[in-house]
Design a protein around this nucleic acid. Structure first.
Lengths: 228, 228
DNA sequence: GCATATTTGTCCGTATGTATA
DNA sequence: CTATACATACGGACAAATATG
């Protein structure tokens, strides 16, 4: 009955030595979820995972609570904890939230005079990393670079809460990617959008950047909604 | 040594009967914090509160964890949990987040054609409730109505995640209000701002509404920063 | 600086209630 | 309907860290 990912989890026991046990358990589980080794809908048994990782149920529940708050897991009362399964409404809501966060971050960055220097360099770096990865055919890296691009856009707002909200939203979206047929190729066509958005920001044309970003959201949301 | 608010907590024991115990404990504690009965910096002893509420330490810790994720409590390793105390950086960050959320919600509402009908009525209702409360001298109600006004602005985006983010941000801000000298009078001068913002939204002049909202944020942020 | 008391961190065992085969 | 599996919640235990005198 024990699934194969439970054994994989067991291999992570060694890294659980230091710091907050619950936090480290959450790190391990988060990696499994965001990398698609734990698929949406999977039930996470307290006893099974606790035994695999060598931690008590109390500690494990602490980790579950962390990930539930990040919306990577869902907690159904008296039934257990499951890897979150997103529906089309979630996709719509996530993109509504992204439109507000990322467009707002660009505008906020503009009024703060922050669309230059280091914050802008982070955006450029993410664009270039993605382009290099695509040239090398490393689709996994393309996806990662795309995430970093949008995280860097959010960082233009210079707000810890915006950064955190962006992290959570992007982590949630990974759940949808893994549910798609061909998740590898999803980000590739948007690389040139990233380049164009970056150029607009760098040129100080932030309203054009916002418009390009909104067009990207429309396309990506439609594609994901169709895949669900 | 036992403080008076612990006895008040004890009076809430009766309401802990059904559903998730930890969730109910969190509800009770959240009400105490947001209503200022538990002031920022107060340490929450596991044993003391557990005894007052009649729940075990494990259950109480789960409730603490919930509220820590909402940023109402802070968890210092090996020292305990405390009612969160916000500094000027927190205020700055909270208002940066609010600027993005609320201005973004108005703009998103505009593109969705949502600045009319029921969503707009909720905004109007909050404005009028605040004005009536001010006329009656009920400053507590003025504060509540002001919160509802901004929550209603966020709701224009038609996004569950935006709604939730607004709730958390406003709950956090209450921590700052309670740390002020005269929290009662804080919201009153902004009632006419609310009215003006509402009129702009209702008239379809959403960019003017955004501008008025940004001016309000500047004023309120400066006032709170000065109070800290 | 040191010794003691208090409090938290973690884990275990168990009784009870709930969902599902 | 019964049986099984599991989550919920409690109470106790001990180590480790902190606060106090």
């Amino acid at each position: 009955m024990t699934a194969e990912w439970v054994e994989e989890l067991g291999a992570e026991r060694a890294s659980l030595g230091r710091a907050s046990t619950a936090g480290r358990v959450a790190d391990v589980l988060r990696a499994h979820v965001t990398q698609g080794r734990l698929l949406p809908g999977t039930r996470l048994s307290e006893e099974e995972i606790g035994a695999a990782l060598g931690v008590s149920r109390n500690t494990l529940r602490e980790a579950f609570r962390l990930l539930t708050h990040e919306r990577l897991l869902t907690h159904e009362f008296n039934r257990g904890v499951f890897v979150r399964r997103l529906d089309s409404d979630d996709v719509r809501d996530l993109y509504a939230f992204r439109r507000i966060l990322e467009c707002g971050a660009i505008r906020r960055g503009a009024t703060l005079g922050r669309l230059t220097g280091e914050p802008l360099d982070d955006v450029r770096r993410a664009v270039e990393t993605g382009e290099r990865a695509a040239a090398a055919g490393d689709w996994n890296e393309v996806g990662t670079a795309n995430m970093e691009f949008h995280q860097a856009l959010g960082a233009l707002a210079d707000s810890q809460r915006v950064d955190e909200a962006m992290s959570h939203v992007l982590a949630e979206l990974r759940l949808v990617f893994h549910a798609m047929a061909a998740p590898e190729a999803f980000h590739q066509p948007y690389l040139e959008d990233n380049r164009r958005i970056f150029e607009f920001v760098a040129a100080g044309s932030h309203e054009e950047a916002v418009a390009a970003l909104l067009a990207y959201f429309d396309a990506a949301e439609a594609q994901l909604a169709a895949a669900i």
